[in-house]
Amino acid sequence: MTRTERRDLRNGLLFASPYIIGFLTFTFYPFAASVYYSFCSFNAIDPPVWTGLSNYRQMMSDGYLHTSLYNTFYYTIGSVPIGIALSILLAVFLNQKLRGMAAYRTIFFLPTIVPVVATSVLWLWVFNAESGLLNGVLRQIGVEWLLSQFGYGLPNWLSDENWSMPSLILMSFWGVGGAVVIFLAGLAEVPDSLYEVAEIDGAGPIRKFWNVTLPMITPTILFNLVMGLIGAFQYFTQVYIMTAGTGGPANSTLVYALYLYQKAFMYLNMGYASAMGWMLFAMVLALTVGVMYSSKRWVHYHGE
């Protein structure tokens, strides 16, 4: 090793030392400890008691865990793909050189920066079946009358076990602004020459979108997809506030992260919660790897 190399190694490690220490303390140690706890019965007060695979065995037969998994998948499948489609649509509209485009972009982006606590409280109010905004407006524009012709009423949104999850998914679309901005950046990278070529071939706007725009922004789609999946699997704050921590009615909004929180901090079953954390990690990892693997087939990188 030359002197320069030695110096670089020393400097490199010194500069990276905050992260190395932080990683070992706040990531690696908890990670390893979590493996240990997941094999224990542990209430955070008394020392952990080794119980072997019992937490994992219990997870196999835990009906609520299965419900919470179902709910999390429901939320993910409901919110991520439609959310991406919506944000692409909005981005394409915004991408035209329109006057006032910055103002629209700002408006779409606003909901994503507002504290989740404030928006959850707000949406609780919007979804209030009796006197909330949504049903109020639906009444006003005659949707209630229309539904009553078929013998239906307006949904009870969050307090109806069939509508509660769709309500949360609906609410998630309010936050597509972040993805819209990323897609806008992606769209800006698409060379104009490609559109010109397509126009010469006589392609209309829809064909241009399918044949040029969409393939060119596939890297951005991949990025948003992965981020969206990770975010959806960690979905917690909104549902915690909007259901007062219960995941009700009838567990219809009990998502995985909420159940884990309940187990850990309401029922003081930290060992089980750790095992749940591990299972979640395995699932997120598998999904991400799956998406990345499949991306070879559908993602086109520029310059290839």
Binding site: T25, F26, T27, Y29, P30, F31, A33, S34, Y37, A44, I230, F233, Q234, Y256, A257, L260, Y261, A264, M270, A273, S274, M276, G277, W278, L280, F281, V284, L285, T288
Partner: peptide, 14 residues
């Protein structure tokens, strides 16, 4: 990519 749920409990204990 690590979900915060994995480290939630051990961090609390730490």
């Amino acid at each position: 990519m690590l979900p915060y749920e994995v480290t939630l409990v051990p961090l609390f204990v730490l």
